[in-house]
């Protein structure tokens, strides 16, 4: 229980009661045979070490390097992403949004925290928190500025609110000066936030 007084993260300080409640629920569910402790460890390990934004970065890098793949990704994202072995929970029905010199896409879930888990992993705290959910749809340019993403005035900003079971992934624009890079090197430039649409990819 010593995480109680030691948890100081701004968004995450739980009520002390919450920590106790989680322990109580887990202990009762295990005791009644409703959850398998080894399955809990496997679930945690999956999202802590196996599934994360490196998956999405591979999808983006492939689309940058392979025009036929990009076409498939834009016309049937779920199938094209599954080609790379990424599918399943919270990514069953995917749509990919392509950024262009004229259009910048940005994804939010104002009602909860819908997010494409197979390609991005679990969402960061800011994505799930009130300020982003409240502001992304109403003042996206101010939000982008806070992320250090300043777009030219003539770029059209499109915000996508994931209010149903479709999950969105942004395909950012390929940075200049990357012609000589292979897919693994390109993937290194693709950040999580560039696939949510709150940032641009890194420059080489």
């Amino acid at each position: 229980m010593n995480e109680l007084p030691m948890s100081h993260h701004k968004h995450n300080d739980p009520l002390p009661e919450t920590v106790l409640r989680v322990k109580a629920l887990e202990s009762l569910l295990v005791e009644k045979g409703l959850v398998d402790p080894a399955a809990l460890d496997a679930l945690i390990d999956t999202y802590e070490t196996k599934v994360g934004p490196r998956n999405g970065a591979r999808v983006v890098a492939r689309a940058w390097a392979d025009p036929a793949y990009r076409e498939r990704l834009l016309s049937d994202a779920s199938a094209a992403i599954a080609e790379l072995g990424f599918s399943g929970r919270q990514g069953e029905d995917m749509v990919v949004l392509e950024n262009t010199p004229q259009v910048h896409n940005m994804v939010v879930c104002t009602l909860c925290s819908c997010y494409p888990w197979p390609v991005l992993g679990l969402p960061p705290v800011w994505y799930k928190s009130a300020p982003y959910r409240a502001r992304a749809v109403a003042e996206p340019r101010a939000v982008l500025e806070e992320f250090g993403c300043s777009l030219p005035e003539d770029v059209e900003v499109r915000v996508w609110d994931s209010t149903a079971e479709v999950r969105y992934l942004v395909l950012p624009m390929r940075p200049r000066g990357t012609d000589a890079l292979n897919q693994a090197q390109l993937a290194e430039l693709v950040t999580r936030d560039s696939m949510i649409g709150t940032a641009l990819p890194r420059s080489p």
């Binding site: 959850v35 080894a38 399955a39 460890d41 929970r89």
Partner: peptide, 20 residues
């Protein structure tokens, strides 16, 4: 059935599409 460790990867990979 109760989710067992052996089934976690398969269950997550399959997901549960809401498409009909």
């Amino acid at each position: 059935p109760v989710l067992k460790a052996d089934n976690v990867a398969a269950v997550l990979r399959k997901g549960a599409s809401a498409r009909l």
